[in-house]
Design a protein around this nucleic acid. Structure first.
Lengths: 344, 344
DNA sequence: GTGAAAGCGCTAACAC
DNA sequence: GTGTTAGCGCTTTCAC
């Protein structure tokens, strides 16, 4: 960006000002042993008064530990990811780490590109948030890249995806989906439709598995439940809801596979003057911050996103285990005002 | 984090594999002149096939241009900031830049700390998003730090704050606030209350200035308008609304100074069974993604957050001007369903 | 307990 | 057009 950068303060300047060698200055500042306490304290005082901050690049190049981590998300503007990022940034700040965030837009190629960038930056750890893809071949290059990174001493943790062979924070998508489905069945709904994101996403696949289990357990045939696939977004939810209303007019409940879609569903129903939950019940998944403030407030499944972000970074900061660790995270049904028994 | 990192691929390895010197290899990869086309192409091919990625630290240390920027936000979980971040990350990816994001939690001390961290990381540019503080003394250390950074060749741009003497993207908070106030006055509201964040924030101060101007222009005394100060969050909005309802029961409109607070206001009104906009109208500010999907959908002022993030990074990437540049950004009133004439 | 000196991987003069 | 080499600022043996 800029080459002609004026001289910044160097360790040498601090050392001179304190009347010691740069070796001693280095040890003093990093808290390494082998320096007498008074000397170390003096050096630190001088450094502070001068406003010295060590050059991370030089430090890293000289073999110092990496103080930075990378976070890969699909889209930081999405509340699901921004809440994860928020939790992760919190522990990052606590640990004195810098966090590089990158977008992938659910594009495997861009994901790979961003991964390479993080590797080039020699981050100490990489956290990947967001659903993986059911088709393993699409992830093969990313997997290879991550393995090389790990062989070189880097640490990796993922949130909500499996098949990558690394430490993982795994929300209970299956169980959570089972519990919303059960909730609707308990209320008496039998004509339910599902608004789903791409089934190529493992998150979606897992949630559908949970739904199927609940329906089957209730003695119902899940094959009779219409699944309408659209973008895993608000707009997708709107589109899916419209298709559901047109093609399956008798439906009494729409089960959206994330809150974003559910918000779109609510909006489509409102536009058609269909009352929720009077005529149609609606459920979401994730419990983003706004879910409780919608009208009607959304019945959904809570995933502790902030905590998931924290856990993932904590996992990545730990020494690697012999085998990949798994941190299961509970998914808790939150019943609010968007669900009620079907109309009589 | 990890010191015992196995050997990664170095430029030397690529040079040897391609049968050239490291200087030639360096030039080939950076696209510098002085290498014959066939040689440069061969080197690049070898590098790609080997999966070589240059070590950013070494490159930066050797005086290469910095390929990373820092983004400072109050709270990444807040949609206002995550939408800004999303726009900024977009151009970052396009430009091949890595973006380090940090949280400050509206705490000047943490802000300073994070700024130091970015400086230590030798980012090429720093973008600061989020309101500044009215009291300049609280920002003096940050300002000094930024000036030192600029003297050393770093670039700085801010979003939505002045007084820092750097390039700035400035949303029209004053004009936007004027237009919502005008909208309510046009509808016939005369008993309006304001739910505001801390008046120590320049954003809040500017928006209040806009309100005052509109009221004054309409021949009303702004001193009669109750201003209830609370956290600039959903919870703050809820608290402010409750206080407004208790202390100023005759109010026909609540003007919240951001969408987050407005969402809290809506929720408090709903809890008390007060219809919006039948009994009370509500307005927000920012137009976060969810504003249009609330029930009732929120009348608010649109700020193009994503674009603001983009613009700020673009400013920061430009050569510095003789004087700080300003990119004013329009604030557009968006009338939706949460406002109506006051009850008769 | 402290200092001198050898790199870390790369870029940018400077030779050839 | 290509190679040689001197650093960038730091950590870390290795002497003292």
């Amino acid at each position: 960006m800029h080459k002609e950068r004026a001289t910044a303060l160097r360790l040498k300047d601090v050392a001179e000002a304190a009347g010691v060698s740069i070796a001693t200055a280095s040890r003093s500042l990093s808290g390494a042993p082998g320096v007498s306490v008074p000397v170390a304290e003096r050096v630190r005082a001088v450094a502070t008064s001068l406003g010295y901050v060590a050059n991370v690049h030089a430090r890293s190049l000289a073999g110092g530990p990496s103080r930075s981590v990378g976070l890969v998300v699909h889209e930081i503007g999405d509340p699901y990811f921004s809440e994860i990022a928020s939790g992760l940034l919190g522990v990052g700040a606590r640990e004195g780490l810098t966090v590089q965030i990158c977008h992938t837009g659910r594009d495997p190629e861009r994901e790979l590109e961003q991964l390479r960038m993080l590797v080039a930056n020699r981050v100490g750890a990489i956290v990947i948030a967001g659903s993986g893809l059911v088709d393993p071949s699409l992830q093969a290059p990313a997997k290879a890249e991550l393995q090389a990174f790990q062989r070189a001493g880097g640490r990796v943790a993922v949130i909500g995806r499996h098949h990558l062979g690394v430490d993982a924070v795994l929300p209970d998508n299956t169980g959570g989906a089972g519990s919303v489905a059960q909730h609707l069945l308990d209320l008496g709904h039998r004509r339910v439709a599902v608004a789903t994101g791409s089934r190529g996403l493992t998150t979606v696949a897992d949630r559908i598995t949970g739904l199927e289990a609940a329906f089957t357990a209730a003695g119902l045939d899940f094959a009779d439940v219409p699944l309408v696939e659209a973008d895993f977004t608000r707009a997708g939810g709107k589109a899916a809801a419209e298709e559901i209303l047109d093609r399956h007019p008798g439906v009494t409940a729409v089960l959206a596979l994330n809150d974003d879609m559910a918000i779109g569903v609510l909006s489509a129903l409102r536009a058609r003057g269909i009352s929720v939950p009077g005529q149609v019940s609606v459920t979401g998944f994730d419990d983003v911050a706004v879910a409780g403030d919608l009208a009607p407030s959304l019945t959904t499944v809570r995933l502790p996103m902030g905590e998931m972000g924290e856990q993932a970074l904590l996992l990545a900061l730990k020494e690697p285990g012999a085998r990949p660790r798994r941190r299961p995270v509970g998914a808790e049904l939150v019943v609010r005002d968007s669900t009620a028994p079907p109309p009589a």
